[in-house]
Design a protein around this nucleic acid. Structure first.
Length: 583
DNA sequence: GCCGTTTTCGGCCCGACTGTTTTCAGTCG
């Protein structure tokens, strides 16, 4: 095999681009076929190189939506690192497709026209042509189109990555509160990827139930912070907010609200599958409801008021929003075999908290009081250890001192059915040993260990390092196992399957760090752990009191990984939790 | 290009809004 190995993500990118090129040529159905493959490759948890190595062409064809022709194309990529078909398409139309399609309102047909008629290849060309007034002269374009292109270029220049859900939610809530205050609003709900609790979101979709949409729409497009209005209709409007987010508002009446909720929550692939199920039953599903044709083409709405009703009429179980990704959940729902996901109120404790003994802002007691308010029964204090000098990490002596302080603090909560547990976030050194002696670790209730250095070790070394830490009998949990920070730092290179295998063998728990920009493990890793029977902990990683409220984002991530209550050790009462741990 | 309780050909999810149309194509989600 020659050339650079492409990631699944990059290969998916190629197929997305091919879809786009084919759409430009006005070719029917093929673009959709390539898109589907791109999305399937993107969500694989095994590299296509590994699949090909193990099972060859046949393995590739087992990827959903991959047939003869595309399997061969993937094979070519694996073998040569290139794809001739793609390169020829690019040669025929040598343009910066990815850049140009960022412009809102500009699609494949428009891009093709701009290239064919006035030779526009990239955003620079486009900007110059628009400024020179050349766009408006083209058939099918006009003055308005030219203006929109200029605005689009400006936004494309300043818009960056996707937004982190847990952080964006605060600002979203303000907008929601504003809309909610209108008397015409009967119900309001954030839908789209935010309701599915994806870790990052591209835009905000909002759904309102109302019988008089007009005043609501008028408020929405004119509310404070709106910098651009893309659409302003009776049922649907779309704006850009000054915080950089695009927001979509749809308004429907009560009889359609459930169907609309279902539709606008997505995912797109999930919706398409659901609609196909309806079609097979001779019915039609859209955002207004589930419809059955009665005599002479007249339709009757058989469901639509609630999501539950629509699922029921489709003869399937209710599917939680976090699962709606068309990753097998639909089949399970049809067979009445869905797992019962861990609930948002199911946690009994928080197992990662940093106090003012190191780099946290609050005292042990303050955290305990907040935990009681949140309905928790225990917390684990996990301050950093000595190698992390910049946090004032504790050494053996410091830890022993903290143990005594916790004993004393526990006196105060005796009557409250609440316990503060003694723990630590021990540093895993380069060779996999720990920076605190075993004889001290032994005295703690629960020990978490994590990596804070040498992020650039080779996959083999990094994996070995973590395995060694897991093999330590005192280590109960590995905190933030992959080390990624969303939009800021890549995960360190790790053989996650080996880590999961070792976790199973050594009875080590892996953490779902609930901090909004960590969410480490990722949903697909969680799914693997659940399948392998590896236990997980959901922790806030709080460095201050408000951070304890992040636990819900960890639960959301666990639900996206199909975890049930029994998979999460801190969903258990204290006694049962302690039995799970090593020794 | 893929896929199959309408199986190896003939389908492929469905609807809102805009701009430039004079009944609709393109784009988006």
């Amino acid at each position: 095999m020659r050339g650079m190995k492409l990631s699944n993500q990059e290969i998916a990118g190629i197929f997305y681009e091919i879809a786009e090129f084919l759409a430009m040529e006005n070719i029917q159905f093929k673009p959709r076929a390539y898109e589907k493959v791109a999305s399937a490759v993107e969500s694989l948890d095994e590299s296509v190189y590994d699949i090909y190595k193990k099972e060859g062409l046949k393995g590739l064809k087992n990827i959903p939506n991959v047939g003869e022709s595309i399997a061969e194309k993937i094979e070519e990529i694996v073998k040569t690192g290139r794809l001739k078909y793609y390169e020829e398409l690019k040669k025929r139309t040598p343009i910066d497709l990815k850049g140009l399609e960022k412009i809102e309102g500009l699609g494949p047909k428009g891009i093709r026209k701009l290239y064919k008629e006035i030779g526009i290849k990239n955003l620079d060309d486009l900007e110059k042509a628009a400024e020179a007034g050349k766009i408006r002269e083209l058939d099918g374009f006009g003055k308005k189109a030219e203006e929109n292109i200029l605005k689009g270029i400006e936004f494309a220049k300043q818009s960056g990555s996707r937004f982190i859900l847990g952080y964006a939610m605060t600002e979203i809530s303000e907008v929601i509160e504003g809309i909610k205050s209108l008397k015409e609003v009967q119900k309001i709900k954030v839908v789209g990827s935010a309701r599915r609790k994806k870790e990052t979101i591209g835009d905000i979709d909002i759904l309102v139930q109302s019988d008089s949409p007009k005043p609501i729409m008028n408020y929405f497009v004119g509310m404070p912070g709106v910098v651009r209005v893309y659409d302003h209709g009776e049922n649907k409007s779309n704006i850009r907010h000054k915080n950089g987010m695009d927001m979509d508002l749809r308004i429907l009446p009560e009889e359609s609200f459930g169907a609309a909720l279902l539709y606008f929550t997505g995912s797109k692939e999930f919706n398409i599958e659901l609609r196909k199920i309806a079609v097979k039953k001779g019915e039609k599903l859209n955002e207004y409801g589930l419809f059955k044709e009665i005599r002479n083409k007249k339709e009757k709405r058989i469901a639509g008021k609630t999501e539950e009703e629509v699922f029921e009429k489709l003869d399937m179980q209710y599917i939680e929003p976090e699962m709606r990704e068309n990753q097998g959940e639909i089949e399970l729902a049809l067979r009445n075999k869905l797992p019962k996901l861990i609930g948002y109120g199911d946690l009994k404790g928080d197992l990662q908290i940093q106090t003012n003994w190191t780099d946290g802002s609050n005292t042990i007691e303050e955290y305990a009081k907040e935990a009681i308010k949140l309905g928790l029964e225990y917390i684990l204090i996990t301050d950093h250890t000595k190698r992390l000098a910049m946090t004032g990490g504790l050494d053996e002596k410091g830890l022993l001192k903290q143990i005594k302080a916790i004993d004393k603090a526990n006196e105060k909560f005796k009557n409250k059915n609440f316990r503060i547990l003694k723990g630590s976030e021990v540093d895993i050194l380069k060779d996999g040993t720990l920076d605190i002696k075993d004889e001290v670790l032994k005295k703690l209730d629960i020990v978490g260990a994590s990596v804070h250095s040498y992020f650039n070790l080779s996959r083999e070394e990094q994996t070995k390092r973590l395995i060694k830490a897991m093999e330590n009998k005192n280590v109960d949990i590995i905190f933030h196992p992959t080390g990624r920070i969303i939009n800021r730092r890549k995960a360190y290179d790790l053989d996650i399957d080996e880590i999961i295998k070792t976790a199973k063998r050594t009875k080590t728990v892996l953490e779902i760090d609930a901090y909004p920009d960590r969410l480490d493990l990722k949903d697909e890793h969680i799914k693997k752990c659940v399948d392998a029977g590896v236990k997980l902990a959901i922790d806030s990683d709080a460095h201050a009191i408000p951070h304890m409220h992040y636990l819900k984002w960890g639960i959301a991530q666990a639900r996206r990984g199909w975890a049930i209550k029994n998979d999460i050790i801190n969903a258990h009462p204290l006694g049962k939790l302690l039995k799970f741990l090593k020794q």
